[in-house]
């Protein structure tokens, strides 16, 4: 079986700066697996998610990232998305003037087109959005607004999961999806994520706290510190961390 995602000895720094943020990061994710990456602030978690999605501003100095066996780093951000990689942003940007529905439809059809699939008709698209949004408790009013504009923190996160549900990616990278969510919203979001779990789809859940992992139960838990993975274990590792804190790992790194 080919791994879905293989990160080998990845070294990354911010463009124009000297400090390395990822310092020999390794990770292999197979289809159907849910990996949690936990770590303290500043350990490089968000950098990892941006590098996977292809944001500029970072310089890869060493290492490689293979996605379905192909060089991910050579692909444009939209090509990665079309290839099935989805990033749920920690801070989804507001895009004034671009209607949410227009955005969703453009994104979905662009991906379908790149994959050689036909465009979805407007009625089919509307039906699909209605179905997915109801499950996530997303109101029609939210759908009428411009992308993320005026959304509360919780609404922004639900909007991310709605996009994930619509686009049906193969690899979901979720960056601090639990931040800013109250307990009810956390449940709605987690249910949305769990509904997407299947034997083919893999997930990388990046989080600072263990509480999200009560809802989205991972197969593997990694502890990240100072730009690399310092410990890997089962779901019980998260509980252990909750008890002992990150200090021990930070020192080890």
């Amino acid at each position: 079986m080919t791994a879905l995602l293989e990160i080998k000895n990845l070294h990354v720094k911010v463009e124009g700066e000297d400090k390395e943020i990822l310092r020999g990061f390794n990770l292999t994710v197979n289809p159907g697996e849910v990996h949690a990456i936990m770590g303290p602030n500043g350990s490089g978690k968000s950098t990892l998610s941006y590098v996977l999605a292809g944001k500029d501003d970072y310089e890869i100095t060493e290492g490689e990232v293979l996605y379905k066996g192909e060089d991910l780093l050579e692909m444009e951000p939209d090509e990665r998305a079309a290839a099935g990689l989805f990033l749920a942003f920690q801070y989804p940007v507001e895009i004034p003037g671009v209607a949410f529905m227009t955005f969703l439809k453009t994104a979905l059809n662009a991906q379908r087109k790149t994959r050689g699939e036909g465009e979805l008709s407007t009625p089919d698209f509307m039906r699909l959005v209605k179905e997915k949004s109801t499950a996530l408790n997303i109101s029609q009013d939210m759908l009428k607004r411009p992308v993320n504009v005026g959304f509360s923190g919780g609404e922004k996160k639900r909007s991310e999961i709605l996009q994930m549900a619509l686009l049906q990616p193969e690899l979901c990278v979720m960056d601090e999806t639990d931040s800013g969510l109250d307990i009810d919203a956390l449940r709605v979001v987690s249910d949305g994520v769990n509904a997407l779990r299947d034997a083919e789809r893999a997930m990388v859940v990046i989080t600072h706290y263990q509480r999200l992992l009560n809802h989205i139960v991972p197969d593997v838990v990694h502890v990240m510190a100072a730009g690399r993975i310092v410990k890997t274990g089962g779901k019980e590792l998260a509980l252990e961390l909750e008890q002992s804190g990150y200090a021990a790992f930070t020192e080890a790194a």
């Binding site: 990665r80 989805f86 895009i95 453009t106």
Partner: peptide, 17 residues
């Protein structure tokens, strides 16, 4: 970047914006 991360090609994304 947000638009492109959703699979919208650069030119389309620019046009949208």
């Amino acid at each position: 970047f947000y638009l492109r991360a959703r699979g919208i090609p650069e030119v389309t994304a620019k046009a949208l914006l």
